[in-house]
Amino acid sequence: MTDWYGNGMGTGGWLAMIAMMTIFWGLVILAGVMIFRGSSRSRLGGNTQDRGALEILDERFARGDVHREEYEARRAALRGSAR
């Protein structure tokens, strides 16, 4: 039966097949991860354009980036402009 197929694929053929399968499955996994990360980011509101200005100001105050006086002044200004 081996005469029908010749000498088979040989070592080089098997190594090329293993390399191509590894690359293929790596790309499939990478695509799945990228799709999952993109969908979870949009679902959780990861884009700062989707969040309101008050939410961003609240986060900055919680981190300590803004002092209380500045926080209250900006919050009042944002609430005044929202009306």
Rank of each mutant, 00 (worst) to 15 (best):
M1E: 04
M1Y: 08
T2Y: 13
D3M: 00
D3Q: 04
W4L: 00
Y5D: 03
G6C: 01
G6M: 01
G6P: 08
N7S: 14
N7K: 04
G8F: 02
G8H: 03
G8S: 06
M9C: 04
M9Y: 09
M9H: 07
G10E: 05
G10M: 03
G10Q: 05
T11F: 14
G12C: 02
G13Y: 07
G13D: 04
W14K: 00
W14V: 07
L15N: 02
A16C: 05
M17V: 12
M17T: 15
A19Q: 09
M20W: 14
M20Y: 07
M21R: 05
M21L: 09
T22A: 10
I23H: 03
F24A: 02
F24W: 01
F24L: 03
W25K: 00
G26R: 04
G26T: 05
G26V: 03
V28F: 07
V28R: 00
V28Y: 01
V28E: 07
V28P: 13
I29H: 02
I29Y: 06
A31V: 00
A31G: 06
G32D: 05
M34E: 11
F36N: 10
R37H: 06
R37C: 12
R37M: 10
R37Q: 13
R37K: 12
R37P: 08
R37A: 13
G38Y: 00
G38F: 00
G38V: 02
G38M: 02
S42H: 08
S42L: 03
R43K: 14
L44F: 14
G45H: 09
G45N: 12
G45Y: 03
G46Y: 05
N47T: 14
T48R: 09
T48P: 12
T48Y: 03
T48M: 08
Q49K: 07
Q49E: 15
D50C: 08
R51Y: 09
G52S: 15
G52L: 06
G52T: 12
L54E: 15
E55H: 09
I56P: 13
I56T: 15
L57W: 04
L57F: 10
D58L: 05
E59F: 05
R60D: 14
R60M: 11
F61K: 04
A62T: 07
A62N: 09
R63C: 08
G64F: 13
G64K: 06
G64E: 00
D65M: 11
D65C: 10
H67I: 06
H67K: 02
H67R: 07
R68Y: 11
R68M: 11
E69I: 06
E69T: 10
E70M: 05
E72Q: 11
E72H: 11
A73R: 05
R75S: 09
A76I: 05
A76N: 12
A77R: 08
A77L: 07
A77F: 09
A77K: 09
A77G: 07
L78Q: 15
L78R: 01
G80S: 11
S81G: 13
S81W: 02
A82K: 04
R83H: 05
